[in-house]
Design a protein around this nucleic acid. Sequence first.
DNA 1: TATTTACAGGACCGCTGCGGTCCGATATTG
DNA 2: CAATATCGGACCGCAGCGGTCCTGTAAATA
Lengths: 156, 156
Amino acid sequence: MIRLSRITDYGIVLMVRLAQNPDDEARNARNLASEADLPVPVVSKVLKTLAREGLLSSQRGSKGGYTLARNAEDISVPEMITALEGPISLTECSVHPGACSQELSCDVREPWQRINSAVHGALSKITLADLTTPELAGSIVPLSALRVDLESAGLE
Amino acid sequence: MIRLSRITDYGIVLMVRLAQNPDDEARNARNLASEADLPVPVVSKVLKTLAREGLLSSQRGSKGGYTLARNAEDISVPEMITALEGPISLTECSVHPGACSQELSCDVREPWQRINSAVHGALSKITLADLTTPELAGSIVPLSALRVDLESAGLE
DNA sequence: TATTTACAGGACCGCTGCGGTCCGATATTG
DNA sequence: CAATATCGGACCGCAGCGGTCCTGTAAATA
């Protein structure tokens, strides 16, 4: 199914909410959880992970909470996915070389590598800012850089 | 991780071997399994699924086995993936509308839909024939239609 | 300094789904 | 009839995921 894990889904939604936060005050887990109507422990876990991976800045103590570590334009979709569920790859051998006994004789390996990087390249052009559509507009600037030349990705 | 399931991986490798089969004699599961160095029951299961989904033709009895149901140029990567592990989608809500309680208020939903179809569109341009590189060449015609305009996919 | 707030790290647990095996039925060949 | 192969589905062990909870630590406030 090539599905994102639920945790990743939550994480991206939370990132979007943080990106939409007007002032740059830190938002705490309880607050975000009630706003997104999700269990607090889950939200807390996700935010901790995102902070550990460097996508969020955290501040402890009273008045503490989370803020984006960078501008929304500088955070890509693959970064968020990778932070929450490891490297993006369709095939095992791209991530764990040697795990597959077929690796040497596999004649499908090389094409898959290129497909992998093509998908990754396409996603990497999409930023958190692209996902942060103001509730109203929506039709003006859709996913800014979605036009992607996959062939160039294939030649990396 | 956005990983293909192992079954799907096997399935595509087997499809490639069938596509490389010079004569159009049917290949049986035992035969393919030993060639790919995989357990017979697993190969059998995968082939059964591919046949049920219409990507392979099967013939029972002695001298029976499997052949491609269509030309390799007419079988796309997403078709194979979908046959083996269901619809390709990054988010749950694209496949099972209503399963997510956030669906109505979710402001990330619409961008993801477009990303979904972009990825799907990119993959759909790649055929089984593209994966069937003759061991030698490899650099001449790499993944023929890999140049893809993702923006058009987004406008579907 | 004491208290409260909130993140950090990690242990823990139930359950679904996946990889993998096996069996009985059916169709084809000779 | 006998041998060969697919077909459909039951079955099982287990890793991984979603989700909870507990203890420690840092910051703010009074």
